[in-house]
Simulated assay, not measured.
Amino acid sequence: MQQLLAAGGRPPHRDRPFDIAGRELSPTRIIELLTPFMTERRMRRIREVVGERTRTVLPVVEGLVNTGNVSAVMRSAEALGYQDVHVVKGSNEKRYKHSKRTTQGAQHWLDVWRWPDADAFVRAMHDSGYRVVVTALREDAKSIREVDFTRPTALVVGNELEGASDAMLELADEAAIIPLNGFTESFNVSVAASIGLYHAREDRIRRQGHHADLSQEEQEALVARFCLRSVTNAESIIERVLSDLQSS
């Protein structure tokens, strides 16, 4: 799912209510209609995964050339409980596409947002109440250990060769580094992102006792979406069931 987030608001929950064949259905109704077509184990797993999700911290990649790195970041983000991933276009970026081998299907469970440049991205983040933290060796960079990830935060990793763009470095609210103890001066970008996202999760748990923080309403909408993705021909099934109920 790829969307371009308009400036001026938190990523919308686009699918509340759901539009199925011209009918508006609530997330709860979607779940009721599809539950008979799923195993108890599958439904339980969906609710467990959704219950561990957050949108307070946003993984962001900017200008990545290697699509495998983008996919690897997405895989880590999904596994660690992040729901939204943002992709900011760079001047040397190739056309972005998923690497199915690397994501292992993670893209099916994420909201992926694309941005034309750093300026549009940062403005929208600020309008939505997020601060932007870029991983970079900026003069004022702090250790990632000093960043409070209980605050709404967009965590940016930059290009494999050149790092974050000059525009992103200038517009970001803070810069952070992952401390290194060896002779190696930097991590692979996908490794750096994974370490940063793992640290952010652990920081949130340490400071507030939990990582996940979606409201019950947000969780119900996400469960409904995941049900739609889990059942083959889900919309056709819903249409058929509703038609049968109406004629009975």
Rank of each mutant, 00 (worst) to 15 (best):
E220F: 01
D244V: 14
R201T: 08
C227S: 08
V134E: 07
S248H: 15
A221R: 08
S128R: 04
V73A: 01
E78L: 03
L33C: 10
V70C: 11
M125V: 01
Y82I: 10
G22W: 11
L4E: 14
R47I: 00
H126V: 05
V157K: 00
E40T: 12
Q208S: 14
E217T: 14
A7E: 14
T56I: 04
L222D: 03
V132R: 05
S243K: 14
R44T: 11
V61E: 03
Q83V: 02
R206N: 11
D213E: 13
Q2Y: 09
R204L: 06
P11A: 10
L5F: 01
E218G: 05
Q219P: 02
A21Y: 15
V70M: 09
G158E: 04
H108L: 12
D111F: 10
T135S: 12
R123H: 10
G105K: 03
D84N: 13
Q216W: 02
T102Y: 01
G9L: 03
N233E: 15
V156Y: 01
R14H: 11
M125S: 08
P179E: 09
D19L: 15
T102S: 06
I46R: 05
D111K: 14
A221L: 12
P179C: 07
A120S: 15
M43K: 00
V112K: 03
H86F: 13
V70N: 08
R23T: 11
A193F: 03
M125I: 03
D127C: 03
E202K: 13
L33H: 08
I177Q: 10
N69P: 00
Q216Y: 00
Q3C: 09
I195G: 07
Q219A: 11
A164L: 01
P17Q: 07
M168S: 10
P59V: 06
M1E: 14
T56G: 13
D148E: 02
S215T: 15
T150K: 00
G8L: 08
L25D: 06
S236D: 13
Q104N: 12
M74R: 04
L171Y: 09
H108Y: 12
V50C: 10
Y198P: 00
I238T: 09
G81R: 07
R138Q: 13
L5C: 13
W109S: 06
R229N: 14
L25N: 06
R138G: 13
R207M: 09
T135C: 13
E239D: 14
